[in-house]
Write a protein that binds this DNA or RNA. Structure first.
Lengths: 210, 210
DNA sequence: GCGAAATGTTGCCGCTGTCAACATTTTTCG
DNA sequence: CGAAAAATGTTGACAGCGGCAACATTTCGC
């Protein structure tokens, strides 16, 4: 059993897993979430219709993989937005702005991440070391980071959860409304405009906590 | 051509359309959005697999009907929450609280309404009076009502859109996070708790506008 | 009553998810 | 180096689904 930790290339296809992942994002962008099919992904990768099953147990597993990738990118974007920023409010501002920007720049990932067609399955916990030796964090990572940042903002001893929930709600709701096209396009047509708009709303919100 | 305006009963099934609508909501609640199938709805209604097509052009039409019903209920709940309330901030508070409560009480409708797998189709505008003589409002109604309420709150001459967007983002994001189970259950386990939590966040937010 | 419209049924097609059996390539290890 | 084993890809099959066409039945307007 080879330790398939890093380099996965030099097999039949090269890196089918990544190709299918990218193809799936492409298909969803073109035909929507319910227009995704494993067979279409296989077709675009130039393999037979059952090949994807060597890399994903089923369709849900593929969607979970996209969601996981999205959460990783989001966490990374949030960390990068806060790095070097020391004042707690500015850190929370930066995270929120990065959140909205991520949603606008990666709409498919955001939709899959929060499509919530992946119900809470606290089962399937076995086989240590079979797959995923790198990172085991799921969506919890993003929320944890947010709560920690909010904790720096509120008075010590106060439960930071409400502040974290409010912040997350604001940026999450804004992101969803933008992605669903329910916000006038002239307000948030580009990622930069979206981020600026988010920062404006966040500044107003921050005033309420004082 | 009978004027099928009101009483739709006394045909083969009685009221297949309503039965399928209710069955679809049931199926979605049990198996998720992607677990919905017209054939399963037909089965539960006791009809053959093609019968639903006499009432819905396709699967999307069924989902659109559910969404329309949801938007009607939401608008009605918002109006009822604001009726008799005169102070603009209290009106906005009431609408937001009703919004969150609606989402918690009708999670399936909320999910379908904002699944955004129903892309903007400004086509198909013909045949006046064929169907739907009652109300023609879509999701625009909810947002319009919100903007109008926000307009009462801000200083005259100021664009109320940012305030409306912020308010909607907050309650919409909160609703989605609750429905997706990303908020600790001990905070918002019941509709009442969810509404109370929403009111608390809204009160904080309102302070920032002053 | 009678024609027409509305409603429901049966049968079919292509597509999809998923599995099992088979084929091929690559890695591991004596 | 050379087999055994593992990983990867292919073919074929099955049931379920969305959607359509043709047919059957009920109800309504007159």
């Amino acid at each position: 059993m080879p330790p398939k930790s890093k380099s996965k290339r030099s097999y039949h296809h090269g890196d089918l897993r990544a190709a299918i992942l990218a193809g799936a994002v492409e298909v969803i962008a073109e035909r929507g979430l319910h227009g995704l099919s494993l067979r279409e992904c296989a077709r675009r990768a130039g393999v037979s219709h059952a090949a994807p099953y060597r890399h994903f147990a089923d369709k849900d597993a593929l969607l979970r993989a996209i969601a996981r990738q999205g959460f990783e990118w989001l966490s990374e974007a949030g960390r990068r937005a806060m790095e070097g920023v020391t004042r707690p409010r500015d850190r929370l501002d930066g995270y929120g702005a990065a959140y909205v920007r991520f949603a606008v720049e990666h709409p498919v990932h955001h939709r899959v991440m929060f499509a919530s067609e992946l119900p809470n399955d606290p089962a399937a916990r076995e086989g240590a070391g079979d797959e995923g030796a790198g990172d085991e964090e799921d969506d919890a990572g993003a929320f944890t980071l947010l709560v920690e940042t909010a904790a720096e903002l509120v008075a010590p001893g106060v439960d930071p959860t409400p502040t974290a929930v409010a912040s997350w709600s604001l940026v999450h709701g804004l992101a969803m409304l933008i992605l669903d096209g329910r916000i006038p396009a002239e307000v948030v047509s580009s990622p930069d405009e979206a981020e600026a708009f988010a920062r404006e709303l966040f500044a107003q919100w921050r005033g309420a906590l004082r």
